[in-house]
Design a protein around this nucleic acid. Structure first.
Lengths: 204, 204
DNA sequence: GTCTATAGAAGGATAGAC
DNA sequence: GTCTATCCTTCTATAGAC
């Protein structure tokens, strides 16, 4: 059963190589726009060899997506009810921005999936994702009601954190085209800008 | 020359039908993921008939994109140096949010193109787009320096307006999945939230 | 202008040698 | 485990009848 749990080191390594190559291709072209040829070339393997490790193109995509949702939600999970409200939210913003900087392909893979109507992860959106957001929104609403941060819609606050941080990964090309080459690293600028934005927004 | 300037009413109407159908397909699947069959079916025409009006799949895509950039920048162009700074920026946010609500397919078409590295509109990003943003950023920087709005990086302010408004079009599925069915129209909520956000951010 | 039929290339997946 | 060869489907685009 090569397609279930890899046993040898070679198998594990090849699966990783394939997933890494596939991440690059899927994140740029979407599921339908990506081809096994592109992935095989990027992975340095033959097309049939790909299909020795994964039963189909879709299986590769699913493997990427199922690992992704957890990684994607980790920064939000870490939002701590016992911390200082503003600090907690600013730290969340920074974690999310770091993910955009360090894992832009994952961000674009996710964006592609959502733009296409989330055909493969809609259940996770309405389940796992919604559950976690509901929980953290309640926490933020509590902070807000207690006057520890300014009054704010907690759901749209979370949306705005997603939008503002993922923008720097998903629209990287546009950001760099507009800023030109004579400026700081966009992510350093973004960190200062977003910190200031959320501080002003949330300070009571 | 059917592919240049349409003459008859039928030609114009069919070209519009095709472009409308293509907008739906390209915006969801991206250029490579879209097929002429899908577009033909959506347009209610045969595949060869599509290629009677446009010379190729790419020509349809290009036709959509070239019209798009102008439409996309109109709300920013309308930012008026003679208006009240905060009102001008809030009005810009509202115009952009309305475009997300009323033209989500255009927003996703643009998002797909950027995520894929902007292979067809990179020149427009570095030219037309950058020029306009530079001009409006200078205007905003002037307002900021004069103390008429709070100090702010004008480029990242513009990015944040794009990110926050386009998010409600491009990630519509996710927004609705998280909010569930028992809430207001997301766009009404978003308008209140974004107005409040930018008011707090920019009030001196 | 619109259709059926089809060419020719590219795509996903399998067979079978090594 | 990995490859070459190949099957079958789908895709873009064209030919040619009407």
């Amino acid at each position: 059963m090569t397609h279930d749990r890899p046993r040898t080191r070679i198998q594990r390594r090849n699966r990783e190589t394939i997933l890494d190559a596939a991440l690059g291709v899927f994140s740029q072209y979407g599921f339908r726009g990506a081809t096994l040829d592109q992935i095989a070339t990027a992975a340095g393997l033959s097309k049939p060899n790909l299909l020795y490790y994964f039963p189909s193109k879709e299986a590769i995509h699913v493997a990427l997506l199922s690992g992704l949702m957890d990684t994607w939600l980790d920064p939000l999970r870490a939002l701590d009810a016992n911390g200082a409200p503003l600090d907690e939210i600013l730290a969340y913003v920074r974690r999310k921005l770091l993910m955009s900087r360090d894992f832009p392909r994952e961000s674009r893979l996710f964006a592609n999936e959502i733009i296409q109507g989330a055909p493969r992860i809609r259940p996770a959106l309405e389940g796992e994702l919604k559950t976690l957001v509901d929980e953290k929104a309640a926490l933020i609403a509590g902070w807000s009601a207690a006057g520890r941060i300014a009054p704010v819609d907690p759901y749209h606050l979370i949306f705005s954190i997603w939008a503002l941080t993922q923008h720097y990964a998903d629209f990287d090309v546009q950001v760099r085209a507009v800023l030109g080459r004579d400026r700081d690293d966009p992510f350093d600028e973004a960190e200062r800008y977003l910190t200031s934005l959320f501080t002003r927004l949330l300070t009571p």
